[in-house]
């Protein structure tokens, strides 16, 4: 197995996103590419990444392998790469991860026993969809955060709004379809879902810079799924369980 990236931004974004959820990550490499799926310890959020072989400058994988890393250790190495540096990874016979950063920095990092079990994805229909620029979404999260720890998303036909409510007050942000940052608002059914900013904010900050447009899909009182389209990466899906009235 060997994979070489084109520049370091995508791998940095991926590792940064994963680091918001877990301390240890198990990646799966197959002939098709590299994937990761994992949930935070409380099972509130899940990240599902598929990074196709076509996104790499060089990629080879003769047989499927799993490899586990401590995300903070891996992250430190990856951060030594400049934006244009490629990052090449392979696994040594001594079961170390070989990480070549740029042309001349050759790291070896210990792998960890991977304890990964297969994580399923939530099986739900998505009634509503909002597509908007990640920078706009990041701003909206900031706007809501000043009064609330939770984001409520509401859609009705082709209208939508984001809102939040806390001890100090509340906010409603109507989405304007003429705004060039908003690409689509659609709903098969009126939907309202409330999600924790504690989980949303870090992942949007981590991937936001490399993602252009993001797609939020949800149904009333059901998980939210956000798709980040990162130039070179197949997809990053982020799932977040809702908060519901009890």
């Amino acid at each position: 197995f060997g994979a070489k990236t084109n520049g370091s931004d995508d791998l940095k974004a991926i590792i940064s996103a994963i680091s918001t959820l877990v301390e240890e990550a198990t990646f799966v490499a197959t002939a098709e590419g590299i994937s990761f799926r994992g949930m935070d310890p409380s099972h509130v959020a899940l990240i599902d990444i598929s990074w196709p072989n076509s996104a790499f400058e060089k990629y080879e994988c003769d047989s499927d392998i799993k490899f586990g890393v401590r995300i903070d250790e891996f992250s430190k190495l990856i951060k030594r790469a400049d934006k244009k540096d490629s990052i090449e990874i392979s696994i040594s016979e001594q079961n170390m991860l070989l990480v070549t950063v740029g042309k001349n920095k050759k790291y070896k990092m210990r792998l960890i026993e991977s304890s990964a079990t297969d994580t399923p994805l939530p099986k739900i229909p998505y009634d509503s969809k909002i597509m908007l620029s990640s920078s706009k979404f990041d701003k909206i999260l900031g706007d809501v955060q000043v009064v609330s720890d939770y984001l409520t998303i509401h859609t009705s036909d082709s209208k939508g709004d984001f809102s939040g409510k806390g001890d100090s007050g509340e906010v409603v942000i109507d989405l304007d379809k003429d705004d060039e940052d908003i690409e689509e608002i659609s709903s098969k059914e009126d939907s309202v879902g409330t999600y924790s900013l504690e989980y949303l904010n870090p992942v949007v900050k981590a991937v936001g810079n490399t993602a252009g447009v993001i797609t939020c899909e949800f149904s009333s009182a059901k998980p939210l799924r956000i798709e980040f389209k990162v130039a070179n990466i197949g997809r990053i899906h982020f799932y977040l369980a809702p908060r519901v009235e009890s």
Partner: peptide
């Protein structure tokens, strides 16, 4: 009162 659900509730 709001309660946090888990993703496992939807598997």
């Amino acid at each position: 009162l709001m309660r946090q659900k888990t993703l496992s509730d939807f598997f």
